[in-house]
Amino acid sequence: MKRIVKKHRLATRWFHWVNFPVLAIMIWSGLLIYWANGVYRLGWGDTTILKFFPRSFYDALYIPHHLAEGMAFHFFFMWFFFLNGILYVLYTLFSGEWRELLPNRHSFKEAWQVLLHDLHLRKALPPQGKYNAAQRVAYTGIIIMGFGSIITGLSIYKPVQFNWLCALCGGYAAARIEHFILTIGYVLFFLIHIVQVILAGWANFRGMVTGFDVEEEAIKAVEEEQLNEAP
């Protein structure tokens, strides 16, 4: 017997899907800004493994010579990114959803087991609630990264007005590097996220849009419902 069960609330889906294009715009406009002083690389001494970014990358995305436009977009959409993020955090706090999302003392060990499982190195998955341990770590980590982007961003944006914040980041140049690394982090998160969504299948993706899931077993569905009803 199949049954429709609630999975993601409207607010969760709203914040998630608003964040997606807004973050994309922030990363794109950030690239327009970064290009004007694109000095970062991965390497040591004279050896460069990866240059941020190769010329072909810039040209393919029409990045060069748009610094002014990049700043105008970045400092406009930063408010949407900030507000959406803050509202999401407040929502998870007040709705109690943080209980599903915050790692507990078992999460880090279990996240490792989940990773081994996903890499087909381990058969069994540790028991989980709505989100598994790896998801808890990832979805909480990304929020901390968001805070990091706000703090390092403000330090670059107004280093004199927020000189204490800038000092906290280790100075202006350090704040710029940290802001950049966090952005690379979002991109890596996004790539893993996409792979996981594809692997998890259609029903999982549908859940993030529609909000519901279809349970196969009636008894399990009832349990799920009760779980979701719990305050």
């Binding site: 002014a68 105008a72 977009f73 400092f75 406009f76 107004k158 004199v160 007005q161 000189n163």
Partner: peptide, 29 residues
């Protein structure tokens, strides 16, 4: 002035917000 009118408005709003918090006592490091 070389940038989308709405974004120009945004820049001005940011200016209003941040210049109202501007203190001449705040010193560059």
């Amino acid at each position: 002035d070389g940038v989308q009118a709405t974004l120009r408005k945004g820049l001005r709003l940011n200016e209003r917000l941040f210049s109202s918090t501007f203190s001449t006592r705040r010193i560059a490091k």
